[in-house]
Each structure stands twice: as C-alpha cells, then as structure tokens.
C-alpha cells in the first residue's frame, strides 16, 4: 500500500527534536515578548532614587547634571553621575565593576545594581516614589 511519506508517523527521535525546537522557540518568544513589553511602555523618568541595602537613601533630579560619591554597604564606594538626563555609575569599589559596565538608565523602572555594595539606583517618574502607574 502506498502512502504519502508525510502521513508516516514521526519516529520518537524526530518527535524529541521537534519538542526541543518548540521548547527553544517558546523560551525565545517569551523573552522577546518581555523585552517588547518593556520597550513600548517606557516613559522618560524624572528622578534617580538611590537605595543601599534595601533602604532609600537619596533622590536626585535627572535634569541636573551631578557627580556624587556615595558610601555603600560594608564601606563600599560608588560614584553616580547624572548627565544629559541619563544616570550611570562612573566608578566603584566593588571587585567586579559590573555596575560601571551596565548601560546608562533614563526610563521609569530601569535600574543599575551593584550587588557587592548592595546599591540600587532606579529611575522614577514625575510624582516621586510611584513606580506603578
């Protein structure tokens, strides 16, 4: 009996490969959806809120250029720079310096984290401490 090859049942191995691809696509799509969602809903921020070890310690307006050195967790030091409406960490005492390498932030909800020094700077919108809107 002749049957078109497309009707042949898939072998177990082929099914597994198909499942692999589905799994990979599903994860990639989910990641893409999250990124798009973040990009379309972003708003220009107004303030930088600095928190050390979970407590908010300072607020700076984004429209004023400043450079300020902060004392962080366990005698750590991080220098925050605000320039042209963007905030970044210019230098730090932490060993990995990943906070310095992270890109600058300007939109509401964006954060830069220095984990060793337990420092988080986050952008908030007009209306102060109100990230949810």
């Amino acid at each position: 009996m002749l049957r078109p090859s497309s009707v042949k049942p898939m072998s177990d191995q082929k099914k597994r490969i198909r499942n692999d691809i589905l799994l990979i696509l599903a994860i990639a799509l989910a990641a893409l959806a999250v990124c798009c969602g973040v990009n379309f809903t972003r708003r220009q921020g107004a303030y930088v809120v600095v928190s050390v070890d979970g407590r908010d310690v300072a607020v700076y307006p984004l429209d004023t250029d400043i450079r300020v050195e902060l004392e962080t967790y366990h005698d750590g030091r991080n220098t925050i720079v605000i320039k042209e409406g963007c905030a970044c960490i210019e230098s730090a005492s932490c060993p990995d310096l990943l906070c310095v390498k992270q890109r600058t932030i300007r939109y509401v909800g964006e954060t830069i984290t220095c984990l060793p020094n337990r420092l988080v700077i986050r952008i908030e919108g007009e209306g102060g401490v109100d990230a949810v809107q």
Binding site: Q13, K15, R16, I17, N19, L23, I24, I27
Partner: peptide
C-alpha cells in the same frame, strides 16, 4: 518524560 533530546534538556 523521554520527550526531549539532550539538547532540549540542556537548554532547560
């Protein structure tokens, strides 16, 4: 589950 190859398992 025997539904994935080592590659799918490794990704997860």
């Amino acid at each position: 589950t025997k539904k994935f190859t080592p590659t799918g398992v490794s990704v997860a």
